[in-house]
Design a binder for these strands. Structure first.
Lengths: 139, 139
DNA sequence: GTTTTTAATTATAATTATTATAATTTTGTA
DNA sequence: TACAAAATTATAATAATTATAATTAAAAAC
C-alpha cells in the first residue's frame, strides 16, 4: 500500500491541489509526529528532493493551515512548529531535552466567564517544564 | 504617593538591582495592562528617556522574567509580549482588532493523564477568535 | 572623598526566521 | 503540440532578536 496515493486523495478532498512537494511535506508531518519546524522539514526533504526551496515549504504550510489540515504551534517564540493532528490537544515542551509531547485535555471543563460571548476559533494550551525522562535522569 | 518608590522596593525584594530604566520599564508594563511588545515599551519610554537603548529593554525583560516578576506571552509567533500579572491566566487575541484580553480559568479542572508525572513550570492558554466588540460591529 | 571595581546601559554589527518579488518550471487543458 | 495558469524556485528584503564591545553609572574599598 502506498501512503502517498492516500495523501494525494486526502489533499484533493481538502481543496488542496496536489503536487509532489505538497505530498512529501504533508507526509513528513503526518508520519514523524515530532512537531517539526520549517527548517526540520526542509532539511529532511531536501535530501529526497534536492531542488526543494524553503519558500515552497513556507507556502505549502501556509496553504495547509488555511485549509485546516495542519496546526501551527507557536510554543516557542522564535520558530513555528507544525502538527498534522488538528484535533485540539495540549503541547508540553521539556526545557531539558527540548522534545514536545502531546497530551489530551478536557476543553469543555474549563469555564471562561470573561470571554463567554467571544467567538473562539483556535485554542492552544502550552505547558513547559521537565519531562519524566529528564527528571529521573537528573537524580 | 509615588509609585516609582514602591517599584524600587518591589524590585529589590525580588533580587533585581534597581535602576531608573528598570523602574520605568516595570512601571510601564504594570500600569498599561496592554501586553506590550518590546517595540511598544521602547517607543513609549524613549519619549521620557531619550537615551534609552532597545538592548536595555531586552536585557531588563529577560532579567524580570528570570526573577518571575513578569510573564512572557508568545501568542503571536513573530513578537513577544509581556504581562506584569504573573498569576496563571488565559489570553484571548482578537483577529480583527488585534487586542489581547485576559481571562481567568480553572487550571485545576483540566486533567492531564499523559503528563501527570511531568514537572510543570509554566502554563500558557491562548485562544484566538473574534471579540464581542468586533462581532457586534460586523452585523 | 577620591580611587577602584563592578555592573548597567548604550551603540553598533551580526544572526535568523520570515516575507516579498520576480523568474523559471511544471501542470492542466484546448 | 501550444497555450494558460499555477506551483516552484532563486534571490533579495525585512524585522525581531542576539552578540559584542565601548561607555556610563553605581557600589565598594581605601
Amino acid at each position: 500500500m502506498n501512503l502517498s496515493v492516500n495523501i494525494n486523495d486526502f489533499l484533493k478532498l481538502n481543496e488542496v491541489k496536489s503536487s509532489f512537494q505538497r505530498i512529501k511535506i504533508y507526509e513528513y508531518i503526518a508520519e514523524n509526529k515530532n512537531h517539526p519546524t520549517v527548517n526540520t522539514i526542509f532539511d529532511e526533504l531536501v535530501k529526497q528532493i534536492p531542488t526543494l526551496s524553503k519558500m515552497t515549504v513556507y507556502n505549502t504550510l501556509k496553504l495547509f493551515r488555511e485549509k485546516n489540515i495542519i496546526q501551527e504551534i507557536s510554543i516557542e517564540d522564535n520558530e513555528l512548529r507544525y502538527d498534522a493532528n488538528v484535533k485540539t490537544h495540549g503541547h508540553f515542551k521539556c526545557r531539558k531535552c527540548g522534545e514536545i509531547f502531546d497530551f489530551e485535555y478536557n476543553n469543555s471543563e474549563i469555564v471562561f466567564t470573561e470571554i463567554n460571548n467571544y467567538k473562539i476559533e483556535e485554542t492552544q494550551l502550552f505547558i513547559k517544564g521537565i519531562c519524566s525522562n529528564c527528571f529521573t535522569m537528573n537524580k
